[in-house]
Each structure stands twice: as structure tokens, then as C-alpha cells.
Amino acid sequence: MSINTSTKAGPALKAAAVATVVVFGVNGLVFASWAARIPAVTETLHVTSGQMGTLLLCAAIGSLLALPTAGLVVSRIGTANTIRASGLLAALASVGIALSLSGESIAGTAVSLFFFGIGIGLWDVSQNIEGADVEHRLRRTIMPQFHAAFSGGAFIGALIGAGLSNIGVGLPVHLLAIAGLVALVTMLTPRYFLPHTAAARPAEGEAKAPRGPSAWRESRTVLVGVVVLGATLTEGAGNDWISKASVDGLGTSESTGALMFALFVLAMTAMRFFGGRVIDAYGRVAVLRASMGAAAAGLCLFVLAGNVWLAALGAALWGVGAALAFPMGMSAAADDPQRAAVRVSVVSTLGYISFLAGPPLLGYLGDLTGIRPAQLAILAPIVLALVLAGAAKPLPAK
């Protein structure tokens, strides 16, 4: 994927933009390597949708514990070192998942997913902070393109997952290969990030600089987080359950379910790649509301369709609608560069409550109704995001 950084951008800024694209892309590849093969996990461990939801909740808890402190961690050690640490943790956790699946250990898988969630949570916040810094210096909307890299990596990961599933390669071997790639990329790529300067400590006898209010007490930041909370549930549910819902609700094969997930991710990728121009033309609020309308329509079509082809059309429209909400939320949180790290951490935390914890709850509901019709519950948070979308309006220039 190429990214337009403008001829006015210096070499260091261009290199940082490309490095950020790579880090986002590998993050998506890691995620899809797990998500696209969830049906294989349920079969290997002999668990129900509700029990699978519990395993997904382990990863959610890990991320939710990491996210509130991620802004502080980045402020202390910088985005590059945070990516290195979180990438290594995610790689080691992937090895743990692979070994646990080989031994058919539910407990081992749960523990490994917990640490996987911590690594992914820290990784996500730090890459978004780096992306917001690059966007601010370029002075144009580019965050959706970084998230397009994530979706593109997820699309490639989903295709790999479908192919490996089709030829009978087990998920443990798949995850071990991915772990090696993650460790390599997250150790080397951040060297091209923008330089980080830790906050200087005041000299002895010198008064400390006044601190602003906690970002958790800023009404706009919290409202943006609530919008992201409602909007990103549609993305998280699609990521985690489209493949399983296709297998259970439409009677498709596991490889076809993975391809349905790949279609969802491809639609997100395309929308994110061109979304920056749409946002610059029509504004965040209007695009956010239109996105949620498309997500609602696509979701209903996917759930209610009577055949695979209509469901595939619904999955694509669902992906288009889910594409821009999260990157717009990150951009809104980072409008003021001086407070970007802590505000992105707050918005990420609130957003991930739904992005990570929502899909496991849908798994429990799926035990009662079937996983495909359970997706209709997502309509409620979509409406919430529509109502509160005005909070994402850009801050006035200082």
C-alpha cells in the first residue's frame, strides 16, 4: 500500500508515515490470523459459542487493563519502545496460544489470550498516537489510511487463514509463523518513528508546570469515547463473528466463512484508503452518521439474507459502514497534540469496551438465539453513535 505524504514532507516524516503503515498492517495481520480461524478454535477445544465468548473475553480483559495506562507508558518511553515491548509480548502470547491449542488446553489458551490482549492493547494505542502525530504534522486527514493498512493486513491474514484451513494446516503452526514475523517487524520498524522527547523534570526549586485536568473529566473526550464505543462494536462483532455466523447460520464451510470475513475486511480497507478525502470534503460528523447508517443496513442484510450472495453483499456494506468510525475517533481525540497521548488512551479505552468485550457478550447471546441473529443487538449502539456523533466535530484551531 502506498500513502501520499505530500512532496512538502521531509524524509523523516515520510519514513515515519511508511513505518506507521507497516506497524498498522502487521497488527491487522496478527488479529486476522486469530479471528479468521475462530471456528477452528471452537472445533479444536470442543467449546460452544458462549464458551468461545469467554475465551474472547480473556483477551478483552487483558486489553482493557492495559489501555488506561497506555498513554502514560507512551509518554514515558515513547511510541517506538512501546511498540517493541507490546509486539514482543503479543508474539510470546501467540506462541502460548499455539502450544495450548496443540495440547487442547482451554486454560492455557485463556491465559495466553489474556497476555495477547495486553500486548495488542498497548500496541494499538501507541500506533494510533504515532499516526495522529504524523497526521498533525502533515496537516491533512491521513488516519483512515493507517487504519486501511490495518484492514489490508487483516484481509491478507484472512486469505492466508482461509487457504491454510483449506489445505489442512493447523492453527498452531499458523500462529507460530505469525509470532516470528511480529517479533521481527516490531523490533526493527519503530526505528523510523518520529523522535520522542520525554517530559523534562523541573530543576530543584523550580515550580512544576501546571497540569491540565484529567482527560477522564473532559466532557468532549468522554463523549467522543462513547461515540467510538457505540460505533466500533459493529467492527468488533464483524471481525470476531462473521466467519462463525456464516458457518452456523448459512451452512457454509470453514474456508467460505473465512472468505466472508475477508470480504468484510476488504470493504473496510477500500473505504479507509479513500475515506480521508471523504472526511475532508464533508466533515467528520456527516461521514460518521452516514457510516453508521450503512453499517446498520449491511448488518440487517447479512443477518436476514436467505442465501450466501445476499449475505456477502450485506457483509461488504457492513464493512463500508464500520470503516471510518474508529480512525475518526482517534483523530478527534488527538486534535490538540499537547493532550493527544492521554486523550487517545481514554477514547481507546472506552472504544475497546465494545470493540473487545462486546463480541464475547454476543457469543453468550448466540447460545440462546444462534450467533447470526444475535448480531442484530448491535443496532442499539449504532443508534447511540448516530445521536452523539456531533461530539467528534474538530476543535477550533488555536
Score class of each variant (00 low, 15 high):
190 P>T: 04
194 L>W: 15
195 P>E: 03
198 A>H: 11
199 A>L: 12
199 A>P: 03
200 A>I: 10
201 R>G: 15
202 P>S: 05
203 A>F: 06
204 E>Y: 09
204 E>T: 07
209 A>C: 05
209 A>W: 02
210 P>A: 15
210 P>D: 14
212 G>K: 13
213 P>T: 11
214 S>N: 07
216 W>Q: 06
218 E>A: 08
220 R>E: 10
220 R>V: 10
222 V>A: 05
223 L>R: 03
226 V>W: 01
226 V>F: 05
227 V>E: 07
228 V>E: 00
230 G>S: 03
230 G>M: 05
232 T>N: 11
233 L>V: 05
236 G>Y: 07
237 A>P: 04
238 G>H: 14
238 G>T: 12
241 W>T: 04
243 S>K: 11
245 A>E: 13
248 D>M: 09
250 L>D: 10
250 L>T: 07
251 G>I: 10
251 G>E: 07
251 G>D: 09
252 T>L: 15
252 T>P: 13
254 E>S: 12
257 G>F: 08
258 A>Y: 09
259 L>P: 06
261 F>I: 13
261 F>K: 10
262 A>I: 11
266 L>E: 08
266 L>A: 09
266 L>Q: 06
269 T>N: 10
270 A>D: 11
274 F>R: 09
276 G>N: 06
277 R>C: 01
279 I>Y: 01
281 A>N: 05
282 Y>A: 01
290 A>L: 07
291 S>W: 01
291 S>A: 01
295 A>H: 00
298 G>P: 07
298 G>I: 04
